[in-house]
Design a binder for these strands. Structure first.
Length: 582
DNA sequence: TTAGGGTTAG
């Protein structure tokens, strides 16, 4: 009773004061500890019980396994498994199901599978435990196969089985399969179940179908905080951050109390919108709601302040954190890199290791970014060696960061070497190697890689074309640059942004095609930024085109009347014209 | 006194 009322102390006191105890009293205290989140203590009681000569029964084992699962304590879990085999409980359905869950949570899918396959009797709960283990261990296809097998074996598919199936579709981003399972949910009458609704919202979000996700959310007859968290996260993940923040406000108006996860999702939206004001407001709500001690909230705040350019506030949050982990350290390192303090980033990278945290793939990637922005080749090589030691160098984020680092440090051969040895590649690393070639003056190689990338089935994005234009700028092929620029819209369904325009203006300018550059600026479909005119002005000065230079300067000063660069360039033009006349 | 499910940070 005490345990269920949340009073572990009273439960423990009653247990300690008992003149005689039996297995049931031990089970009760172990279960009380687990129920109140004291998993280590539960395992201590499990050991003491053993030591005092009591024989654990199926209930004891289930409670102990639950504690191991929550702690991801695999060694202890294996020990409990051995005791189960010794006591002859391995064939007990509930015990075996708990073993499946424990192995799944500890990342041991093979062991979960072998327990499941050896079970003499299974019910729907055992099946969904196995599906869940597959989802947690990157085998969503296997989870869906189990779901189908359940049907063949005429095992009842209840709401939990459907939720596991939806989860698998979410991981696979398989919208078609998700729609089919949604239809089956409606057929079976589970659509009003709140957890099913939440899983549907999440699945549609992960499948990039925001419209479906919003429809499900709007039709939900009951919602809880997780439903709101899910829809806010989905909007933020699908480039609808403003909408995410509107929903955050709406949630509060409707009387739901935001929790740590809500704050994390809302802060992510502020970060991508660079909305400092809203971020600060949410920071206030976090303190008010007593969530500021949560590690994920602290990390999300560091990220938000970092992306909003307020490194000092990110630092303050980081310094005040009671508890830190690899993710929060990496967030702080990333914030420094983003705000041009790469030296501090590398200091933190060292400090983190002195504090006993092992860098993971993301930390290495941040540290390598820091080296890249400092062009610190030696430090980059040192970190490269550390990634090899940590067996991280093949991971796509690390390898991409290495390609980028070597590219920016002028060591194209090393960049190419890392790229060629990558076991898996994505668009980002293709862009990194193309950019590395372009930056180091290997324009032809960049264009060859671009063709190769398409042969491998990757579709270029805006960043790819920016690098290609940079490549053309080095090799001086104006026609090729024009071709790439045009093909963005004509063949690849992309829209050019101001960076693409600037790049082409630069290429035209360098080649002395000043009239083309000017026409091109005039044809730009959106507002001309000062730097566009400055670029033209610069090239006019180089080529001594006074008339056009003056026009460009006028435009530049029109949009920014106090622009010093414009005055300097313009006076250079006058001076040069004067010299020539004299 | 015992088993499965939904949101989340770099």
């Amino acid at each position: 009773m005490y345990a269920k009322c949340g009073s572990l102390d009273s439960a423990r006191n009653v247990f300690m004061g008992m003149p005689r105890r039996d297995v049931i009293s031990w089970n009760a205290v172990i279960s009380a500890c687990t129920l109140n989140g004291h998993r280590e203590e539960a395992l201590d009681f499990f050991d003491r019980m053993h030591g005092e000569g009591f024989k654990p029964d199926e209930v004891t084992f289930v409670c102990a396994l639950d504690a191991c699962a929550s702690l991801a304590a695999i060694e202890k879990g294996i020990e409990v498994h051995a005791a189960i085999v010794e006591s002859g409980y391995e064939d007990h359905m509930i015990v075996a199901t708990s073993l499946v869950k424990m192995y799944g949570k500890c990342g041991k899918l093979d062991d979960a599978r072998s327990v499941f396959n050896r079970m003499p009797k299974r019910n729907k709960i055992s099946w969904s435990a196995m599906m869940s283990a597959c989802n947690q261990n990157a085998c969503p296809k296997e989870a869906l196969n189990l779901f189908t097998e359940m049907q063949h074996n005429r095992i009842e598919q209840d709401q939990v089985a459907f939720v596991c199936a939806l989860d698998a579709c979410a991981i696979l981003a398989d919208l078609e399969q998700g729609h089919k399972i949604h239809a089956a949910i409606v057929r079976e009458g589970y659509e009003d179940h709140v957890v099913v609704g939440n899983a549907l919202v999440n699945m549609y979000g992960k499948c990039r179908s925001l419209e479906d996700a919003r429809n499900v959310f709007q039709r939900m007859p009951y919602r809880d905080v997780i439903s709101w968290n899910a829809i806010i996260a989905v909007c933020s993940q699908n480039v609808q951050s403003r909408l995410a923040l509107d929903l955050y406000d709406q949630m509060r108006r409707e009387g739901f109390k935001p929790g740590a996860v809500t704050f994390v999702c809302a802060l992510e939206a502020c970060a991508s919108l660079v909305d400092l004001e809203k971020g600060q407001e949410i920071h206030g709500a976090i303190v008010h709601g007593g969530c500021d001690g949560e590690i994920i909230v602290g990390t999300a705040l560091i990220n938000m302040y970092g992306k909003c350019g307020i490194l000092e506030d990110a630092r303050n949050v980081f310094n005040r954190m009671v508890c830190r982990d690899v993710v929060s350290w990496s967030a702080m390192i990333a914030a420094c890199v983003l705000n041009n303090d790469a030296k501090k980033a590398l200091d933190l990278f060292n400090q983190m290791q002195c504090n006993g945290f092992m860098p993971d793939q993301f930390t290495f990637a941040c540290a390598l970014d820091a080296c890249a922005s400092l062009a610190a080749l030696e430090k980059g090589q040192e970190i490269h060696a550390a990634t090899i030691k940590a067996q991280c160098e093949g991971q796509v984020v690390v390898a991409t960061a290495l390609v980028n680092m070597y590219g920016k440090c002028g060591s194209l051969e090393d960049a190419r070497n890392v790229f060629d040895h990558m076991p898996h590649r994505n668009l980002v690393c293709w862009n990194a190697i193309i950019a590395a070639c372009a930056r180091n003056g290997h324009g032809i190689e960049a264009i060859e890689l671009f063709k190769h990338m398409q042969c491998c089935g990757f579709k270029p994005d805006g960043a790819t074309f920016l690098s290609l234009l940079a490549a053309c700028s080095h090799s001086g092929t104006v026609d090729e640059a024009r071709h790439f620029f045009k093909s963005m819209t004509e063949h690849h369904g992309l829209t050019q942004n101001v960076e693409h325009y600037l790049c082409l203006i630069d290429i035209l300018g360098r080649a002395g095609h000043l009239k083309d550059a000017e026409d091109f600026i005039n044809d730009m479909p959106y507002e001309k930024e000062t730097r566009v005119w400055l670029s033209l002005l610069w090239h006019c000065q180089i080529h001594g085109d006074m008339e056009r230079g003056i026009r460009a300067a006028r435009h530049a000063l029109n949009s920014d009347p106090r622009n010093a660069t414009a005055y300097v360039l313009l006076s250079n033009i006058y001076a040069e014209a004067g010299t020539r006349e004299a």
